[in-house]
Design a protein around this nucleic acid. Structure first.
Lengths: 188, 188
DNA sequence: GTGGTTGATGTCAGCTGCTGTCATCACTGT
DNA sequence: ACAGTGATGACAGCAGCTGACATCAACCAC
């Protein structure tokens, strides 16, 4: 048996989410999170860069998944189809996390600082996707726009998915939103 | 003559920008900004919600301008054309502020916290634009997508404008980027 | 003009997020 | 055994930000 209880990081994540749900993000101190996880405040900051980051641990895995999905899409695919296709694939992964996603998103939506962090994660993701597209020979401007447009579609679809009372399929919402974007930009 | 020097807010903005440029955002304390402006730290926080917000004072005017431009676009215009048209118009206003914009953007780009703040301002703007479109009878989904797509175009165009060595016209870059978005989404 | 009100600022105390630094001590390999 | 490693604890301290109260010129009512 180790000197300490295992999975300190996971305990901190759980304690933080619980407290953020119970009493809100701002009303929760880092010392409280650490105490509930059976650790000290200093240790909290060894595992997470700041009080917000504890909610965004899953983002790096998501990023890697999307990057490899875009990179491995067929050469015949247009840039935007590569991006939307990758996002549809990743959308399927959210199926089983619906309730967790809702809870987490409610916490984020209730606080501006957390919304800021979420937006920069998405912007950084768009930037990475654009880089991958450029690596596939896509021009600078279309790469940026395909990536930004894809993330815009994802944002809209995700919001619909979270607020949908039923059990809509995120992948399908992404596809529908993309078709709507096509319709919206096609005019003129 | 007043009891205090006039334009305290403006002095704080100038002092903050100067210090951020001179030694970087993180290396500047709010006390230093206040001191350089001839005021106290407490007064700084009476004028600005936080250390970042001092760089985003012009955003509310920009927002109002864009909102009224979208609202007053002809009924015959499609949603995306209303948005792009409004952004083109606002783009013309940046003509005379090129050097200031570059300086300010360099400060923002050098710091993640400032980039977060900028992104939430743009996201909030997109949300407001979508609301205006809905008020004009546009459906929920197309309103969100036209607004998000418009902001995506603006982001890409603004970045090109800032990094362009010459003196490109922001309005023209917005138009070009929009045409490129059309081309990118038109496939399939 | 006397007196009350207002509004921008100053002063001060204090909490919280976050960091640097050093100590601790189970575990690991030799 | 014994030294090294790595996760954690303990403690001090800075900077961002807030609440509460004081100050005092300008303005207004009379």
């Amino acid at each position: 048996m180790g000197r300490w209880e295992p999975n300190a990081r996971g305990r901190l994540e759980q304690a933080a989410l619980d407290l953020y749900v119970e009493r809100g993000f701002e009303q929760t101190t880092t010392a409280e999170i650490a105490r509930r996880a059976g650790l000290t405040e200093r240790t909290f900051f060894r595992h997470f860069a700041d009080k917000r980051e504890v909610l965004f641990g899953g983002h790096s895995a998501l990023r890697e998944f999307i990057v490899s999905a875009v990179a491995s899409s067929p050469d015949s695919a247009t840039p935007i189809d590569s991006v939307i296709g990758a996002l549809e694939t990743v959308g399927a992964l959210f199926l089983v996390r619906r309730e967790y996603s809702r809870q987490r998103q409610a916490v984020i939506d209730a606080n501006d600082e957390l919304r800021e962090r979420e937006l920069i994660k998405l912007a950084s993701l768009a930037s990475t996707i654009a880089d991958v597209l450029r690596g596939r020979g896509v021009g600078d401007l279309p790469a940026s726009l395909a990536a930004e447009a894809g993330i815009a579609v994802f944002k809209v679809a995700f919001e619909r998915w979270i607020s949908d009372a039923g059990d809509a399929d995120l992948s399908r919402l992404i596809r529908e939103s993309f078709e709507e974007l096509k319709a919206v930009t096609a005019g003129g």
